[in-house]
């Protein structure tokens, strides 16, 4: 126990605030303030849309933690988001569990899948594009299973009637069915997730992930069990993605196979890449902006959005390898 405490103190000791971090923190505070005031002006429809985007931002943060810090790209990350959503839906509608139980079920299943797959792949030395593609295959197959296993998953239609989260604490009652309350709930959780991840990764723990990501062999000879560190990060990211998915299921009220699938996996990569890998605030804001844009574009034409996504990938690879944040930085340096 004492040893665990020592370990935590070593891993998560907070250094002083650097100049670049100060800019990020200012952007984060400003964004939070604007979003907190939004319900005063936004319509119910836009409020609900922004709330969904905030939950998707938690999902994006989970990928950013993994991809931005350890350089492990998961191309099928929606697999875990979808497992969280289906866990919540199956627990509440089929098993009659409370939403808290559904949350735990989704997270537990997603973390177990990640731990099992990660054990086999990461300990075998599977990395980089190999790992990325295998996770993509997993998400593809999970979509097929969700579509064909009708008795449990509801098939192509999915599951309807997932109840909103309701609980009382300290004499206050929270009802996820209320638009404004659920918006503030999502806003709070998204920024809390960002804060926790940012604090963890600016501490020495983040240095370890960076070391493993950039030069794994060297890190190994310094005494790090790199496969185990990657496995922990992968499992944690999966659990966080499932957390976001389970919340998303309660606010949307429905789950369907596309929550596990390629398009969502693709979009989350875009959100992170555009926001700037490893910056946390970047992917969070990018999720809100790009999700809003995608809703607008999809309402015009359904095939236009995937076409644009494809073009965005090429744009990022060739023009903006560090996302929009790099534009900010370049201007500052100029």
């Amino acid at each position: 126990m004492a040893r665990l405490l020592v370990a935590c103190r070593l891993l998560f000791a907070q250094p002083g605030l650097g100049g670049r971090e100060r800019v990020g923190a200012q952007i984060a505070v400003a964004a939070f303030a604007v979003l907190a005031l939004y319900p005063a002006v936004g319509s119910d429809y836009h409020l609900a849309q922004l709330r969904d985007a905030l939950l998707l931002a938690i999902f994006a943060l989970s990928l950013d933690y993994l991809w931005g810090r350890t350089r492990m790209l998961v191309m099928g990350h929606a697999l875990f988001f979808g497992i969280g959503a289906y866990g919540m839906a199956i627990a509440t509608t089929r098993l009659g569990w409370p939403t808290g139980g559904g949350l735990l079920l989704g997270i537990a299943v997603a973390a177990s899948v990640a731990a099992a797959v990660g054990y086999f792949l990461l300990y075998a030395g599977v990395r980089l594009h190999f790992f990325a593609v295998l996770t993509m295959a997993m998400s593809l197959i999970a979509t097929q299973i969700a579509a064909s296993w009708s008795s449990v998953t509801g098939g192509d239609v999915g599951i309807l009637g997932v109840p909103p989260i309701e609980f009382s604490a300290f004499g206050l009652h929270y009802s996820g069915g209320d638009g404004t309350a659920s918006y503030y709930g999502a806003l709070f959780l998204a920024f809390l997730t960002m804060l926790v991840l940012w604090l963890a990764c600016r501490a020495p723990y983040g240095l370890i992930l960076e070391a493993i990501g950039s030069n794994e062999n060297r890190a190994r000879t310094l005494g790090f069990n790199t496969a185990r560190q990657l496995l922990i990060a992968f499992t944690a990211a999966a659990a966080l993605a499932a957390f976001a998915g389970a919340l998303f299921a309660t606010t949307a009220g429905v789950v369907a196979p596309d929550l596990l699938g390629t398009l969502l996996s693709t979009e989350v990569m875009i959100w992170v890449a555009i926001g700037g890998r490893g910056t946390f605030i970047g992917p969070l804001l990018a999720t809100l902006l790009v999700h809003e844009a995608s809703q607008t574009i999809s309402s015009l034409s359904t095939s236009l959005w995937p076409l644009l996504l494809g073009a965005l990938f090429l744009l990022i690879v060739f023009a903006l390898p560090d996302g929009l944040v790099s534009l900010l930085r370049r201007r500052k340096e100029a």
Partner: peptide
């Protein structure tokens, strides 16, 4: 390699659409 995978993925989306 990781950029290649992203770029070819983008091409795949574009070709499909």
């Amino acid at each position: 390699p990781l950029d290649t995978i992203l770029a070819t993925f983008g091409i795949s989306l574009i070709l499909q659409k």
